[in-house]
């Protein structure tokens, strides 16, 4: 059994497109945060998006996650046109096909680590027992089994991010989105999260990482997309360090 085998067992990178952005434009008032962005991400790929503050990185991530809608253009993820879906459709899509991790973890303070993770499956209608069973498997794989009954306030930053990753993986998503996943962590915890993302990608998990951290991009991603003023300034393949 390979590491993280319970996460998912999919083939490595294929030619199947998981994400396609086609001429995506997003305006906030008079300002265009994204200006005609077109991008494709294939299954099993790990793509890092970088750029200076305000270049549109987070807006791009929001488009792909269905957290926001484009002003113009098409957003297709896992074969579904997100720009045409209503709020409920988007929620159901995220629930089944996307996993997200955030810079500040966004765990619920009043749920234990295990319940935070199980929650993602319970929203899909899984019973509490089934959801907890699945969450325990992930806790084992991510090396935080001993912290399952601890509340977020008592976890270290690295542990919180691992719990967040476990929650993101709970419903076996087609795409894992990471928004500055190491931004709030010390270097050691950051390294652990990077290792985890690499392991996930190696077993076939498609990744889209938005970051300021070049080291994270170069360690985890196979392709780098650089944004400037809402446009793709440069795309380059990366050799993982």
């Amino acid at each position: 059994m390979t590491p993280l085998s319970v996460v998912r067992s999919v083939p490595g990178m294929t030619t199947e497109t998981v994400v396609r952005l086609d001429g995506v434009r997003k305006e906030f008032g008079e300002t265009a945060a994204l200006d005609g962005v077109s991008l494709e991400i294939r299954r099993g790929e790990a793509v890092a998006v970088m750029g200076p503050s305000g270049c549109g990185k987070s807006t791009l991530l929001n488009m792909v996650a269905g957290l926001d809608r484009p002003t113009a253009g098409e957003v297709t993820v896992h074969g579904e046109r997100l720009d045409l879906m209503n709020e409920t459709g988007l929620a159901l899509f995220r629930r089944h096909h996307l996993g997200m991790i955030f810079q500040f973890f966004n765990l619920l303070d009043d749920l234990s680590a295990l319940d935070n993770v199980a929650l993602a499956a319970q929203l899909t209608g899984s019973s509490a027992a089934t959801a907890r069973r699945r969450a325990l498997e992930l806790f084992d794989e991510l090396g935080i089994a001993g912290r399952r009954d601890v509340y977020p306030a008592a976890l270290s930053g690295g542990e919180r991010q691992r719990v967040a990753v476990a929650r993101a993986l709970m419903n076996r998503p087609a795409l894992l989105l990471a928004d500055e996943p190491t931004g709030a962590l010390d270097s050691r915890a950051g390294e652990q999260v990077m290792d985890l993302l690499i392991d996930l990608n190696q077993i076939g998990q498609t990744l889209l990482i938005v970051t300021h951290d070049e080291r994270l991009a170069h360690r985890c991603a196979s392709r780098l997309v650089e944004l400037a003023d809402g446009r793709i300034a440069r795309e380059s393949a990366l050799d993982r360090v």
Binding site: A65, T88, A91, R95, H96, N106, L119, L123
Partner: peptide, 16 residues
Amino acid sequence: RRDLGMLKSIGMTPRQ
């Protein structure tokens, strides 16, 4: 607000 945002990000529908 943050919790609600997170719950929606992991698939909680508006009705939920």
